[in-house]
Design a protein around this nucleic acid. Structure first.
Lengths: 137, 137
DNA sequence: ATGCCTGCAAAGCTTTTGCAGATGC
DNA sequence: GCATCTGCAAAAGCTTTGCAGGCAT
C-alpha cells in the first residue's frame, strides 16, 4: 500500500478514515468528487465516518499537496487526487461530465501575460463550460 | 440617466436601491465588488438598503446580463458591470488587486480545444493568481 | 389601484470548529 | 502512554427566501 507512505510523508498518521478517503479519490471512475460525494460513498461502503472528518481530511490532503480543490460553478468544491501532471478542466453543463486537458500554448501565454503586467504567475484556474456538439440538424 | 433605461430594458422597475447599486458598480475605482462591499458603501452613503436586497438586486442584474458574477478564491462572489467587452482576470495574491486582460489567442485555443473534444464552448472562467515581480535581489 | 419591490428576520447550504472519547505509534 | 485523530453537534459565513408593508407606474 503506497498510500500509507504518502500519508506518512505528509506528516499524517495512517488512520482508517484517511486511507478510505484516499482510496475513494484514487480508485473512482469519476475523478472529481465533492465532500458530500465522498461521504455518501463511505456510507455505502458501510464505513462510519462523519462528514466533518471528510472535510477535515480533505483540507489536510490539500495542504499536503495530495489533492487539488476546485471551485466549479455550483456552490461546492470538488476534490481530485494530484498525480503530478498539471491540467485544466472542461465541464459539460448538460451532463456534468468533467474532461481534463492540457495545452502548452495556453500555459505559456498565461505566463507571458502575467509578466507583461509586471507579475509572476503563481497559479491559475481555467474552466471551460461546454455542451455537446449537435451532429444533426 | 442611461441607467434608468437599462433597468427598464431588463424588465425591472426603476427603484432607488437598483439605481444606487448600479451607480456604485459603474462609478467605482475598484470594479470588482462583493455584495458586502456594496452594502457597506451604501451604508456609508447614508442609504438604508438591506444586504438581502443587495443580493437580490445583483442576482437580477446577473440574469439580465447587466453584471457578471465571479467566484475568485475566498468564499464569496464578486460582481462587475458588463460593459460588453469580454475579458479575463488576474488577481494579485498579495495586494488583492484585480487586473483585466484579454488574449485573442487564448480565446481561440479554448474554442479549438472544446471542439476537439466534441463540445461547443459556452462560457469559460480564467483567473491567474499572481504576485508582483521582484525587481531587486 | 395593483403588482412589483424592499426590509427584516429566519432559513439554507457548504464548510469549519470545540470538545470528549477513541485510536495509532 | 501520549499525541493525534475522529464523531457529534453546534457554529460560522455567505446567500436565499417568506412575509407584510411600501413604492413605482
Amino acid at each position: 500500500m503506497l498510500q500509507r507512505q504518502e500519508l506518512r510523508k505528509a506528516g499524517l498518521k495512517v488512520t482508517l478514515p484517511r486511507l478510505k478517503i484516499l482510496e475513494i479519490l484514487a480508485g473512482h471512475g469519476q475523478r472529481h468528487l465533492s465532500a458530500e460525494d465522498i461521504y455518501k460513498e463511505l456510507l455505502d461502503t458501510g464505513e462510519d465516518i462523519g462528514l466533518a472528518t471528510v472535510y477535515r481530511v480533505l483540507t489536510q490532503f490539500e495542504s499536503a499537496g495530495l489533492v487539488h480543490r476546485h471551485n466549479f460553478e455550483g456552490g461546492h468544491s470538488v476534490f481530485e487526487v494530484d498525480e503530478g501532471e498539471h491540467h485544466d478542466h472542461m465541464v459539460c453543463v448538460e451532463t456534468g461530465d468533467v474532461v481534463e486537458f492540457m495545452n502548452e500554448e495556453i500555459e505559456r501565454l498565461q505566463k507571458d501575460i502575467a509578466h507583461k503586467h509586471g507579475y509572476e504567475l503563481i497559479d491559475h484556474s481555467l474552466v471551460l463550460y461546454v455542451k455537446p456538439l449537435k451532429k444533426d440538424a
